[in-house]
Computed example of a mutant assay.
Amino acid sequence: METIVDEPQWLRTASWLGCPLVGAGIGWFLQSIADWVVSLSWVPFKGPFQLVSDIPDPWGPVAGAGAGLVLGLLFAAVWAHERLIVKVTPTRITLTVKGRTRAYEAELQAVFLDGKELVLLASDGRELAREKGDVDREAVAKAFTEHGYPWHAEPPAVK
């Protein structure tokens, strides 16, 4: 039996839909924002803003929305790439982050969250893994305790 701790499906879906839509929305108004910035007398380096402001209608808002859409997709891709996925079985722990998967089958002394970092300590006290991720604290604790791993609610005291 395998337990997987990952971001909820609704959040993964929302990131792939929401980030591009928000980016496109901001991009749509980019020309209006540039017009406003150019009108301010105290703003230095008006050149890039003037360039955006001078794009003829309707191409300014359309180009801005397109650029925002692409940037939103890039942001969602980085988000997906950076997320931590934890798979736990009675004999193996698999951590996937940044497109890299590592499996651990060693006997463990402790498993805990140190802030937002999941830490695996070997039975000899050395750190096997320390991976940053936004995992649900309760879900990850339940996954490890259900499979018999030594879960600690707090980082153990250093000896």
Rank of each mutant, 00 (worst) to 15 (best):
T101F: 02
D136G: 12
R137V: 10
T91W: 12
E105N: 13
V22R: 00
L128V: 03
P20K: 04
G18K: 00
G133E: 01
R83A: 11
G72K: 02
Q9M: 10
E117N: 14
L40Y: 04
W151Y: 06
D35R: 13
V5T: 08
C19P: 00
W42C: 02
T89P: 08
A110M: 07
L108E: 07
F45H: 13
P58W: 10
G72C: 05
A143L: 01
V158Q: 14
L113A: 02
Q109L: 15
A14H: 00
W59K: 03
A141G: 12
S53I: 01
S41R: 14
P56H: 06
F49A: 12
S53F: 01
S39C: 01
V38C: 07
P48H: 02
P155K: 06
R130M: 01
R137D: 08
R137W: 06
L40Q: 14
S15D: 03
G133C: 04
G66K: 01
R137T: 09
F75E: 03
V5W: 09
A143V: 07
W79Q: 14
L113V: 01
F112K: 06
A103E: 14
V119W: 09
E146N: 13
D136K: 11
A141T: 10
V38I: 08
E2C: 03
Q31I: 01
K46I: 05
E82N: 15
G23A: 00
F112M: 12
R12D: 00
M1Q: 12
K98N: 13
G25M: 07
I85A: 10
E154H: 05
Y149A: 04
A63V: 14
P156I: 04
